[in-house]
Design a protein around this nucleic acid. Sequence first.
RNA 1: GGCCCGUUGGUGAAACGGUUAACACACACGCCUUUCACGCGUGCAUUUAUGGGUUCAAAUCCCGUACGGGUCACCA
Length: 547
Amino acid sequence: MSNKDLADLIFPNITKTIEDYEKMYPSRNGQVVTRIAPSPTGYMHIGGIYQSIIDNLIAKHNNGIFILRIEDTDQKREVKAAVDLIKEALYRYDLIPDEYELDGKIVGNYGPYVQSERKEIYHAFIKRLIEIGRAYPCFCKKEELDELRVMQEHKKLRTGYYGKYAKCRNLTVEEMINRIKSGEEYVIRFKSMGDFDHKFKFHDEVKGDLELSQNDEDFVIMKSDNLLPTYHFAHLVDDYLMRTTHVIRGEEWLSSVAKHVELFETFNFELPKYIHTPLIIKKEGNSIRKISKRKDPEATMSYYSENGYPKEAVIESLMTIINSNYEEWHTQNPDKSYLEFNYDPSKMSSSGALYDLEKLNSLSKEIISKKKANDVCEESYEWALKYSESLKEMIEQDKTYYTNILNIEREQEKPRKDIINYSMIEDLIWYMYDDKFDSRDKVYEWKNITDKDEIKLILNTYFNKYYDINDDKDTWFNKVKLMCDELGYAANIKDYKKEPEKYKGNVADVSTVIRVSITTKSNTPDLYEIMKLLGVSRIMSRINKLK
RNA sequence: GGCCCGUUGGUGAAACGGUUAACACACACGCCUUUCACGCGUGCAUUUAUGGGUUCAAAUCCCGUACGGGUCACCA
């Protein structure tokens, strides 16, 4: 009985060899290939988009290929709709893969791109490993493994299935065959030849040169229940066969590179470049921790959709933590797409990247302020369709009116920056709509002038004597100033500051009274424009109701 | 606990043996202004977690300590 017999017993139907697959998926002649490989376990995590941005950036920058590969080897954790969620998130941010498998359609010559569909491929590789004596079935039960670990911990030994603790590696082929034939459950383990006390040099594109201990663990490469490989083995096979040149993955994988290196060396495959990205972390009180889907809403991409952040803002904010020199580059090249930025992994922070919502907000304000009113209208309408019935109705009443509101103080050199995201638009402009104005609980935000009679006096004087809807902006404001003179307010703030005791107040106070009486708010965009849009009769009706 | 990685203002960070330790966000103040905002200006680390060492010179190199993170699954 030989290893070959064992291999044939375990994989009787596997006839294709590694060499067959190498021919099916030939070398791509130096073309750069990156890949995002999420497991479909729920909503897209912000780390996934973060990595996809880097994948896409490297691929596009080098005329390369960006692959989406679904890692569904863990059926227990699988969530059915998750692939749709992944696709949705990727497409929303224009991170469109060149090769993928979605909705049953395969695009690309290196597929399938879903791991559960690649079972025979993995089996061919495992079969070879068994044949050459570098993999073996292990019959240890979970309880035995637990016992082993407890014993190791107790003796303060390194835990794991290695060396003399890897007892199944010493089984004879005959014994293995007999136990398999008798129906015992087993996993396939890799037979390591490494020595933990020997170090090897490893270059990571982010962390630089590292010295790591060799792997000596006989880790599991194929699971017992679904015969699918574990991550480590799938990484070897898929990234080799898909000809991946750059593996971008989270830092948590750093501690398994010794396993991967031994795997690649065993097959004599060239190692891809590794970019182990810092974890996205979050500060909570005094502790810093990995951002988590369960505790942090902003860890999930749906947070940004639900709150109506424009996609550019999300990308920008992530770019600033990907390479901190990005922001500077972007201010120098305001018209260029981020895809033209020269990403440099060695410039990535090697500690965690703290994702800052404050920064996102500031970026988002900036970006929205530079958009055309029409685009803001369309994008916010799209958002409202999904997330806000109320805003949707406002927009549908009269799109032009809505756009005009958005356009106040917009198309000028220094546009107003008050919209952080689309979910806050309604809060910013509801007073421009009569039904909202009438139905909402509102507080008039009077400032310096609160005396009812004084307010009445100002409003009466202004609307009876001065206000004319047809005035241009300068005339309009000059009239406000004229009224100030008449009522004893300073028309000029400087005059007021010089001799405040001479006046009842200044033009700012008077303007505030007009503003608040019409909008209830002390903070609004340009009053002249607002009055123009509202029109005389609506203004007067509001003024009259006030009395 | 073992192994690995890290630690520069409130935050993201630059600086790769010689700078007043960039820049951005936040914050504070001032100016501008019909309010708020925008914009503009100013301020904001006597010092790079900490203790030693190397050097004419250290945030940068070396060692120790502390603290934080990752990992030690038939999860990825």
